[in-house]
Structures are given as C-alpha cells and as structure tokens.
Design a protein around this nucleic acid. Sequence first.
DNA 1: GATGAATGAGCATTCATTCAT
DNA 2: CATGAATGAATGCTCATTCAT
Lengths: 203, 203, 203, 203
Amino acid sequence: MGKIDENKKRKKEALYNTAYELFITKGINSTAISDIVEKAGVAKGTFYLYFKDKYDIKNKLVSHKTQELFNAADDALAISGTKGLEEQLIFIIDHIVNTLMNNKPLLNFISKNLVMGALRSTLITGEKNANEIYEKFLKLVEQDEYSYTDVDVMLFTIVELAGSAGYNSMMYEEPLPIEEYKPFLYRTIRLIIESHRKRTQTS
Amino acid sequence: MGKIDENKKRKKEALYNTAYELFITKGINSTAISDIVEKAGVAKGTFYLYFKDKYDIKNKLVSHKTQELFNAADDALAISGTKGLEEQLIFIIDHIVNTLMNNKPLLNFISKNLVMGALRSTLITGEKNANEIYEKFLKLVEQDEYSYTDVDVMLFTIVELAGSAGYNSMMYEEPLPIEEYKPFLYRTIRLIIESHRKRTQTS
Amino acid sequence: MGKIDENKKRKKEALYNTAYELFITKGINSTAISDIVEKAGVAKGTFYLYFKDKYDIKNKLVSHKTQELFNAADDALAISGTKGLEEQLIFIIDHIVNTLMNNKPLLNFISKNLVMGALRSTLITGEKNANEIYEKFLKLVEQDEYSYTDVDVMLFTIVELAGSAGYNSMMYEEPLPIEEYKPFLYRTIRLIIESHRKRTQTS
Amino acid sequence: MGKIDENKKRKKEALYNTAYELFITKGINSTAISDIVEKAGVAKGTFYLYFKDKYDIKNKLVSHKTQELFNAADDALAISGTKGLEEQLIFIIDHIVNTLMNNKPLLNFISKNLVMGALRSTLITGEKNANEIYEKFLKLVEQDEYSYTDVDVMLFTIVELAGSAGYNSMMYEEPLPIEEYKPFLYRTIRLIIESHRKRTQTS
DNA sequence: GATGAATGAGCATTCATTCAT
DNA sequence: CATGAATGAATGCTCATTCAT
C-alpha cells in the first residue's frame, strides 16, 4: 500500500503543480489537458482518474491557493501578537496584499475569486476543512473587547471590498498604486467595522 | 453611399445583437462564431470584416452594455430630481442594482467587469464618448454643497464595493439576498462619502 | 507491443502511400489533409500524430522516393557487373532516367529536388541511413583504376547537370527528347569525370 | 486618354512591384491577393482586371526578372568588349551569378526557374519580345571564329548546369561556396563548348 | 473602368475523451 | 491502476471571387 499510494499521491501532486504553473503562464483557456499531462509526465488517461475536466482542477486550485493565502496571513497574525479586531483584520488583509504584490501571477489567477475561494469554498469544492478560515474569522470577532452585529455581513463586505478594489489597484495601479491606495482602503475597512460595532453596553 | 453604409450598419448591428443573445444564453465559451453568423444571417467572412475574434465582440459588448446601464441610471436620476451627492450616488447604484436584478443574464454577462468596464472603457476600446460617465460623476460631485478630497478614489471605492458585493449578493444571495443587503451596502457607501468630505468650512 | 506497434506502423504506411498517390494525382497544393486521411481510412487527428503538416509528409516522401531510385539503380549496377567509373556513373544515371521516363508522375513529384533530395537528405530529415547513397558513390570512385581530385565537386556537378537538364528534356522534350539528348548528356558527363581525373601516375 | 491610360499603367505597375516585394518577403504561398492589393493601394476587383490569379502574376514576374538579368549581363558584355564565345558565355554567367549573390531574395524567387524562365518565356507568357535573349545567344555563337554543332543543345546544357549547380552553391554553399565552385563550373562550361566545336576545317 | 463589401466553401488544427492493452 | 494511440466532432479563420454601385 505505502508504495502504491505514494505513487498515486505523487502523480496527483504533479498534476496539481503542473496545472497551476501552466494556468498562470499560458492562461486557462490556452492550457490543454495534453499540456498538463505531458509536462507532468503522466499518461492522459491518468488525468481523468483524478479530475473530471480542466475546470475541476482549476476550481480546486483556486480554492487551495486562497486558503494558503489566508492561512499564511493567520499564522503571521498569531506571531505578531496583534490585538484588537480592527488591527487584526487589517493585518490579515495587509499580509495578503503584500504577498500578492510579490506574486502577480497568483494575483491574476485567483483574481476576483478571492472571496468565494475563501469564504465559500466548502460549498463549491469538496475540499475537506475548507471554511475553517471562516471559523477563524469568527473567533477573532468573538475575542474582541467589543460585540458586533451581522458579523457575516461585515466580513463579507470587507473581503469583497479589499478583494475587488485591491485587485484593480495592484493590477492596473488605478486609481492609485496599491501603496498609495492602502490608507484609503484601510480607513474604509475601519469604518465598516465600526459601523457593525454594538453600542458599548457600558454597565 | 446611403444604401451601402446602411447595409453595413445593419449587418454589424445584427452581429452585435445575436452575439449578445447567444453569449447570455449559452455562455461565451460555448458560443461559436458559426453560431453567431448563422443566427445573424450573414456569412462567416462578414464577421471577420468587423471583429477580430470572439473576444473582440465580447469586450465591445461588455463596454456597451455597461454604459447603457449607467446612462439609464443617470437619466432616471435627472427625472427624479434627487438632491445631494449621497442620495444621488445611492440612487444611481440602486437603479443599476434593480435593473440587474430583473436581468440576471445581463448581470452574469457583465458580472464583475461592471466597474472597470464603466470607468475605463475609453482606455480599452476606442468607443467614442466612453468615459462621459466619469464626467457625469465628477459633475455631481462638483455641484454638491460639500467639497470632497480624492474624488476619484472615492468613486472608485464605491463602485468597486457595489459591483463586487452587489454581484455576489444578487447572484448567490450570500451572505444575504440583495434586498436585505442593500441597507448595509448603502450605509457603507455613505460612510465612504463622508470620509472624503472636506471638513465643513464653517463660515 | 507487437499488436499496437504493428497497428501504428500500418497507419503510418497507409498515410504515406495515400499521400503519395494524391500528391502525384492532384498535385500538392490541391491535396487537402482531409483527402489523405479519408482515403487512408484513418481519423484526421491520426495524421497529426505522425506528421507536422502537409509539407512534412511531402518532404519525407521526396527524400524516400529519391533514395529508392538510387538504390534500385545501384542494385541493377551490381547485377550488370559494369566496370569503370565512367561506365558505372552513366549506368546509374541512365537507369534513373529510364525509370523516370516510365513514371512521369514520379518525375514530376521529385522534379528538381532529385539532387538535393538524394545527397542532403540526411541533413534535412532525420531519416536513418540517408546518405549511404553518397557513401556508395565514394566507394565506386575509390575502386576505380584512376584517382580523382575534388570528388564531391565532381559528383555534385554530374548529378546537378543530369537532374536539371534531364528533367527538362524528359518533361518538355526541349531542346530534344531525352533519347536524343542522352548522347550529349553522357558525353558531357564523361568530360566532367575526365577533368577530375588525376594525371595517371604511371610508375 | 493620356491621363486614364497613365493611371491604368500606374496601377498595374503598383501591383507588379508590390507582388514582387511580397513574394520575396513572405513567399508565394503565404501571399494573398488581399495583401497585394492592400499594399498596392488599389481595390481588390482591380487585380482581376489585369491578372487571372496569383500564379499569373507570379509567372509574369519570374519571366520579367529573368530577362532583366540576362539583359543586364548582355549590356555589360558589350561594354567589356570581351571576345571569343567561351569568354563571352562565361562573362554572362559570371555577371548573373554575381548579381544574384548580391540579391539572395531574387535568387530564391527565380530559383531553378532561371533557365526555363529565360529560354521559354515566349512560349508560356505572351510577353512581346521574350526570346530575344535566345537570339542574342545565337548571334554570339555565329560571330565566333569557330563553328558549332547543335548550338541549342550546347546553350541548353550550359544554362541548365549553371542554373542548377550555381543555385545550390550560392544558396547552401554546398559542396563549396560559389566563389570556390566557380573555377570548376567554368572549366566544365569550357569543356561543353569545346565538345560542340566543329573540327576546325583547316583548309 | 474601379471599387470594396459580402460571400461561403474550404481547410488546418485542436483537444477532450475513450478503451484495449 | 496506468497507459497513450486513436478518434472525429468542433471550430476558427482564410481568401479567391463576385457584383452592385
């Protein structure tokens, strides 16, 4: 079993890696399954053993890559010891933005799917523990000194805004390069958070 | 001249209309150029007289449809007689949202291209008066009783947020159906506007 | 293995044969790949499994047919027992001329590519033992009672002349039909050979 | 008349020049009639007013260019004052070879059509005084101090050899670069001429 | 004569998918 | 499980030719 299962996994990994590489290099439309299997060094039939078609592997990749992004940000957050929900959310977003700025192909690949990839990936793909990211967000909210209403709406709005505006700013430097846009973006995020804060129940 | 040019225009129009219909019906990937010309009743070669390929006509359509949306909203704004920048911007967005809610295929077609399609179409396509939409926005801002800083950043942020969050809400009813999400969305938009308002020059 | 490889070879052969037949029947420009595969009884995709395009298979065919011509001439030479370089070279050329006279379509197909097809095929195509023809020529030269200078120039000149003049004479009967032109051609070939002969170092 | 006929001629000339330029640049197969008319600045229909198809204009061009070559060589011969048939024929061939060496695209274009293009152009195209070239050759032969048998065979053999061997030598530097091959070529030409010389009727 | 919009047959090429080995 | 040869429908695109103006 060990040997065979190992081999199976290795082939699947090879397919994932190669597909990702080709998708960001040549684009999804221009990447044929033959390209993938050829470069991955497996037979054509093998692809169909693990994936339904090109879009199957693509969706799984988007999902996977997005989770990686959030998890890395979350790890860094823990190390940083940042306190306070506002600072924490901005820390996470800033971390992701910085990562993507240094990896434009990845930015282009997940593009505006950021949100869906992160918050709803369970629904789309069958990936095991997909929306543990969402759980982590909820935990951060709970631990804050303030209480919040409509937490999911708040998170959704923040992530959508950051994803969409951030993407354009990073990709096209419009209306401003991301470094110059950041102050505006983070100010807006703070406003959103505040607007969801329950009036402090001063005892 | 009349006769020939008229004919040219008619064929081009036919291609535009048919392509749009097929794109929203079958999707872009599944629409072949043969489908378009066949349904439009012109020869295949004629398509290539006017468009470079499928994506050429697609981009021009996205651009065109987006402008239509904004223009219709603007017209309605004029009729409504709404006053005040906050109310005006929200009126426009609300108008577009309502239109798209009644036209899901269109929503799906322009999807997240909404934003950039609208504000940067001049740059991309050679369409004549493309960013007069942007001009109109600027005029609204100017005419307000308040002054604003970084107007383009403000408009960009609003449009990105509305486009991205609105799309998800309308399309997937997540995290809430659009009617329930609207209050949150509009509240955030008001916050963004306020945050760009110059400190009232109290006389 | 046997079965699959056999099948592969059979299909490739079928493509070669059909292509040749069509090329000499309808001409290369008028032969479509669909014609070839249809007549060969294989699927269109199969063609691209073995050849890059129409010109790929054409070049390989020219090369192949030219080699066949030389090899047949060489075999006949061995049987004839002809002695002496002059007589041997003329025997070979005469054999090829006679063969082509009885096979005008082949003459037309390889036309003036005769020469280069034969002597440089190794360089161009990856065909295995392509210029063994050249080797055979060299051997004939070596075995002659005389020595020769600039052997490759001599062979080149002879083959070019025979190929070019012979083609026109056979094809258009200009300035004379080949049978009447032969004496002139062979006389010139003898002159060329003599002019490369080293002054007999009679000891 | 003047004006209209002038215009006609100008368009035809433009088509010739443009076609030639494109043929040597992109190759004949890759040059479409649309390319020609577009670059020539005339309407598509106009092409068909003057030529039957692409191959019509091509043949006329080959013929025309070849004649130019021979005529230029002949003019230079006259100026040089070279005497004796051997020297004269070699002068002509040398002149043409040198011209083509400085104009590889032209060499490639007329390639092996050189010979027939020159000597049979009358037959093929309806060009007015095409084989006056042939006449000139005959005159040179007549004026020589020696008499020759089978003059047309002699000229044919020389031109075929020079055309075919020269082309390969110039184009591929095989078996030798043209400058090194020239001595062999010219030696062979002299042998051919001598072999057609009537035994001097020493009275 | 000249134009150039329109045509549509024709063709090369791709590629997802299957299935015998 | 894995393979990769074979398939052939699907499709984008070209281009010579026509003909109304």
